[in-house]
């Protein structure tokens, strides 16, 4: 499958059909058994998570408490969780915490994160505000490919709306977005193309305006496999 610049590809599938494994393989959190992953034609298969991040991939993880945040860290530290070692925050291994706070304040402001400030523990924020902070952090790096895994799970309508508009904005800025969701409505409304995953394989790719929820549902359940649309490769052009 491939995700092009300036489009949102949604992955539809029932929980447990290989979505998490796919993301973990792309982001370097899991060893790739076969196939290749390339970004802008550059092979990034098997790179460590840090190298994948540096190559230009942003990742909104599906479990914000397990992977997305260090809950006992201040929200400000969390906003610099992948960039704390880079200039201008760090120089020769010494962190300038003023810079971490500055960056945190800017993102808190821009992404409407409701918090008492950068020093509040991430644990104390509501789910929606935690998620906004994560999205702010990932989008702020301006990644070529943004992977959003269940980005709106457990959030209220306002936060969902906000997050969808951010994903669309990212696409309109000419970036690629890969959206994984168990909500069919979300996949249908936000994606430009939908890849259906079943039993660890992409069984079909459809356009949201040419398909119905029933059709998607059947595909997700492993019925009516049309053609052989699956490739092992993941491209971002």
């Amino acid at each position: 499958m491939d995700v092009r610049a300036g489009e949102i590809v949604g992955i539809a599938g029932i929980d447990g059909n290989g979505q998490s494994e796919l993301i973990e393989a792309i982001t370097g959190l899991r060893k790739v058994k076969s196939g290749t992953i390339s970004l802008h034609g550059k092979n990034i298969t098997g790179l460590k998570p840090r190298k994948v991040t540096e190559a230009g991939i942003g990742h909104i993880p599906q479990d914000r408490h397990k992977h997305g945040l260090v809950l006992d860290f201040p929200i400000g530290h969390n906003i610099s969780l992948q960039t704390y070692y880079q200039q201008p925050i760090s120089k020769n291994g010494i962190i300038d915490y003023n810079k971490i706070d500055e960056k945190a304040k800017a993102i808190i402001e821009a992404y409407d994160v409701r918090t008492q400030g950068p020093h509040e523990p991430a644990r104390a924020l509501s789910g929606g505000n935690q998620q906004k902070a994560i999205i702010g952090r990932e989008v702020d790096r301006n990644p070529e490919l943004l992977i959003a895994a269940l980005p709106t799970r457990g959030l209220d309508v306002g936060a969902i709306e906000f997050i969808h508009s951010r994903l669309i904005e990212q696409r309109d800025n000419g970036k690629a977005v890969l959206l994984i969701s168990f909500e069919l409505d979300e996949v249908m409304n936000v994606s430009d193309r939908i890849a259906v995953i079943h039993d660890g394989e992409i069984v079909d790719t459809v356009l949201p305006e040419e398909t119905t929820e029933q059709e998607l549902g059947l595909l997700m359940a492993g019925h009516a496999v049309r053609g052989s649309n699956h490739k092992e490769d993941q491209h971002v052009d």
């Binding site: 982001t27 959190l29 460590k48 998570p49 840090r50 190298k51 994948v52 991040t53 990742h59 993880p61 397990k66 992977h67 997305g68 945040l69 260090v70 809950l71 006992d72 860290f73 530290h77 969780l81 992948q82």
Partner: peptide, 14 residues
């Protein structure tokens, strides 16, 4: 400190 609090998030963060 990050590793001390959360192995998974630390790994995710590279």
């Amino acid at each position: 400190k990050a590793v001390g609090f959360n192995h998974n998030a630390s790994q995710y963060a590279g």
